[in-house]
Design a protein around this nucleic acid. Structure first.
Lengths: 343, 343
DNA sequence: TCCGCCCATTAAAGCGTTTTTCCGGCGAGG
DNA sequence: CCTCGCCGGAAAAACGCTTTAATGGGCGGA
């Protein structure tokens, strides 16, 4: 026969105090004297007692749990992108006593409306939805809903949804300024068009190039593929080279595609950066290790995770009622970009 | 003022049935007639009602939640290894109505004994602990404990801990047989020595090589580093080449280190496989894409995830009381290995 | 027509906490 | 010496569901 699980009642009996006192001790309530606290805690330690979290959740109307939903990329966890964000969220959530409930936005997850169920059943106090794409219309449910919901590193123009994201338009400006400042006027852009942030980046990049004071640049752009992969970047570069043979720079919407572009250049005997400058976005670890080092825009995704978690907790506590943060980005100059070649 | 959250009581009142009937309907109890079921569900749908999971957990003494603990590698989620396993666990857990609580085995997590707390507080019904290292002594707590605990792709010789893992010794045999069968007798082994499975692999590989019928092989081994990385494999290869210059084959304990080895060979003008055969373990996606394709031992980690989840659920239901499964592996021959060069 | 039986349904007792209200005693101030 | 206020602690009412034992009604068999 298995020993009955201990409850707060057992602790109360053993320590000689009432149920409520024990509860107050366990919650660090200031009304309890140190002497009482010590005596209760001694018993708690002795029995290695941990209060039942279901009972706690029921009584306190809070699960102290955050739902984190990640996109359903096939190899989702291999994407460094996610790792950074999740680490940030985890760090912050844990430090505030919150646990993380993980979900993957599979077709089944969407179809069965798990995202609603999780919050409606109070299994989670709030939801962090990481980086979905432009087709996630079902998220409209969370407009003006009582549920605490936050998009992470993603925005949804036209929808009233809270978000914390890197400022992709600002990144586009930094990138364009860097390349234009180096004299490039024929640029190939490898864009990601399956996310709104990707579209923002593309549009802002094109806008800045078109309106550049020192003379507008000619930009050809192609889509780098749904996966934003090295492979996609490679293929896109081939297309751009055919479309705009005189290009002197390639701008890719992320580092992986940029590395694919560098690979294509190497395979096709174009020197980087002597003949063609290549630039990416994100500043993944690999960016510093390729040869030449990849010039890029740094996106601090760990920080995005931290900040997202801060915000959702504030939403939960009612300290704020909405949130639309754009985090700053910065230019990282390495060897893959240089002044436009003469002639 | 915010609308009061609906409860089962509201559904009962509205549908004209009792509390218990509604509850039984929600739990698909067979004793309820179809007519009743339909009428209750109509109201449930109408109000978009989902039962409070804390109340449910409290009454049923089950959280329907699994704790998944992943190792605290810096870039933990970038490791494809984990992605596969977690995907498998998630798939299975979800199909059985279980949710996943994610934790990272940080120093803090260990120190504060979160692993105990999670189970003691009944926040999770069971714990899946992924791939820790040889220093995880604190897991002894789970020997003969009432808590449902399972090591995933890891074993702990000498401890009575449940596990589901790939059979690393079998992999070592397959690998050794392949290389020895190709005539190799001077082999460099890049081992991982910070996990028990890594040690098992090394020892079994050495044993088979030493006792090979057609003539034993000379094997030099070095450690590939804590991270089992490409970089580590590269450095290890350099050491091996110095230590056993006449080697004709490199065996690495995982594909990433093997790819590092191939890189070293390329940088040092050794032809693979003409001069040196190289072989890995895992069969990561990249293994098929390097040139030449990497011969390796296939480890189906998605399946490890699936099977682990099956087992922990059986442990929770009491269908089994212990578990020590080793999943089979298989040889994948690609271009990086060939017959030993003559002379 | 009456008796039992079986079935769907219900009543009620938890499940283990939190939290609000209440209470008794003690010290300080008048 | 009395009263007021304060403070640590206790009682008790939720919290929203599950689950078991009890109930009542309808039906078949005698």
């Amino acid at each position: 026969m298995v020993a009955r699980r201990r409850t707060i009642k057992d602790i109360a009996k053993e320590s000689g105090f009432s149920l409520s006192t024990v509860s107050l001790v366990l919650n660090n309530h200031p009304r309890i004297s140190q002497a009482t606290r010590d005596r209760v805690m001694a018993v708690v330690k002795k029995y290695n007692f941990y209060p039942n979290s279901a009972a706690r959740g029921l009584a306190s109307k809070s699960s102290r749990t955050l739902s984190v939903v990640v996109p359903n990329l096939t190899r989702v966890f291999s994407d460094i992108y996610l790792g950074e964000i999740i680490s940030g969220i985890y760090e912050r959530a844990t430090s505030q006593g919150y646990k993380i409930l993980l979900d993957i936005a599979t077709a089944q997850f969407i179809k069965s409306q798990e995202y609603t169920k999780l919050l409606a059943s109070r299994r989670a106090d709030g939801m962090l939805f990481i980086a979905s794409d432009i087709h996630a219309d079902y998220l409209s449910v969370f407009e003006d809903s009582p549920y605490k919901f936050l998009l992470v590193n993603h925005v949804f123009p036209g929808k009233k949804l809270n978000y914390v994201s890197v400022d992709y338009a600002a990144s586009a400006r930094l990138a364009a300024q860097h390349l234009l400042g180096l004299g490039h006027r024929r640029i190939g852009l490898i864009a990601g068009t399956n996310t709104f942030t990707g579209l923002q980046f593309r549009d802002e990049f094109l806008r800045v190039c078109k309106t550049w004071q020192a003379g507008p640049a000619k930009v050809a752009w192609v889509d780098g593929g749904e996966e934003w992969s090295q492979r996609g970047g490679y293929a896109a570069t081939a297309k751009l080279a055919a479309q705009l043979p005189e290009l002197t720079a390639i701008m890719a919407a992320n580092d992986r595609m940029a590395i694919g572009a560098m690979r294509w250049m190497a395979d096709n005997h174009r020197e980087v950066p002597e003949q063609v400058s290549v630039m990416g976005v994100d500043d993944i670890q690999l960016a510093a290790y390729v040869n030449p080092g990849l010039s890029t825009i740094r996106h601090d995704l760990y920080q995005v995770g931290i900040e997202s978690c801060n915000r959702i907790l504030q939403l939960i506590k009612g300290e704020i009622t909405e949130c639309s943060d754009l985090l700053p980005t910065s230019m990282v100059v390495r060897g893959s970009t240089s002044r436009v070649p003469v002639g």
